[in-house]
């Protein structure tokens, strides 16, 4: 176990834990957007910024979601300096995604309602945290979407920006893992539509042979059958109707 201090509280954490998780286990709140337990840490949104002082006395700012706990570390999560930087970060996020309710709410909690920066036009809620792409790669294992280009042109997209990604199975994990609601998933009748910031894709849903409800995309069922080595015929009924 590693002993460290967060906000004056002496706590213990297992070696290899990040500051963010150690704080969370001790009910110390650190705001974050891009953190997702299901995927490896990435440090994209920078909101989990904390001030640390190592045992040797070196002070610096780090993102708590990727910094591992150290013996004798002193962490401050809510100093004036942190609040000031976090405020600017939130202002930048507000300028990038003026329509995102999640960011508006988060900023309001820090007392920020307006941004001094130029607001981006268009209804784009994507903060480029790559939660969707990381989930698609690490959890689902298909890597249908990724971030492309660089700098101001960076965007989440399908390969070649096509409205069709052959690898996509329509599971909707990207929409589920998106912290700001930039990706949406709508099931209507036999059709599922997944909308990414720059592309959209439609999927045919499979009908349950018993209750008649549409329950999962055909492509996803085929993928599950293939990776688990089970027969497609085992998936004719939805989970509720299976015995």
């Amino acid at each position: 176990m590693v002993k460290l201090t967060i906000n004056g509280r002496k706590i213990q954490a297992e070696e290899g834990t990040t500051i963010l998780y150690a704080a969370r286990d001790n009910n110390i709140f650190i705001p974050t957007l891009c953190e997702n337990e299901a995927v490896s840490p990435y440090g994209a949104c920078r909101l989990c910024l904390v001030q640390i002082k190592t045992a040797r006395g070196r002070e610096r700012l780090v993102t708590s979601c990727i910094y591992l706990v150290e013996e004798g570390l002193t962490v401050e999560t809510n100093t004036e300096r942190i609040r000031k930087i976090r405020g600017v970060l939130l202002e930048l996020l507000l300028a990038r995604c003026p329509d995102s309710e999640v960011i508006q709410e988060m900023a309001a909690k820090e007392g920020i309602t307006i941004t001094r920066f130029y607001k981006r036009k268009g209804n784009n809620k994507c903060i480029l945290c790559a939660n969707c792409a990381r989930t698609c790669e690490e959890v689902v294992g298909v890597s249908a979407i990724s971030l492309a280009n660089r700098g101001v042109d960076r965007e989440l997209t399908t390969p070649f920006g096509d409205d069709f990604s052959e690898a996509c199975i329509g599971c909707g994990s990207c929409a589920y893992s998106c912290p700001t609601g930039a990706i949406t998933l709508i099931d209507r009748g036999s059709k599922r539509t997944i909308k990414w910031p720059h592309n959209r894709m439609e999927f045919k849903l499979q009908k349950c042979s018993v209750c008649g409800n549409y329950w999962a995309p055909e492509k996803q069922i085929a993928y599950i059958a293939k990776t688990s080595g089970t027969k497609l015929s085992e998936y004719v009924a939805c989970p509720d109707c299976r015995d």
Binding site: C136, E137, V142, I145, S146, R150, S165, E166, A167
Partner: peptide, 12 residues
């Protein structure tokens, strides 16, 4: 390697 990754690298 997934095509999405190749595209990501090639455009970066």
């Amino acid at each position: 390697v997934p095509i999405s990754r190749v595209y990501s690298v090639a455009t970066f």
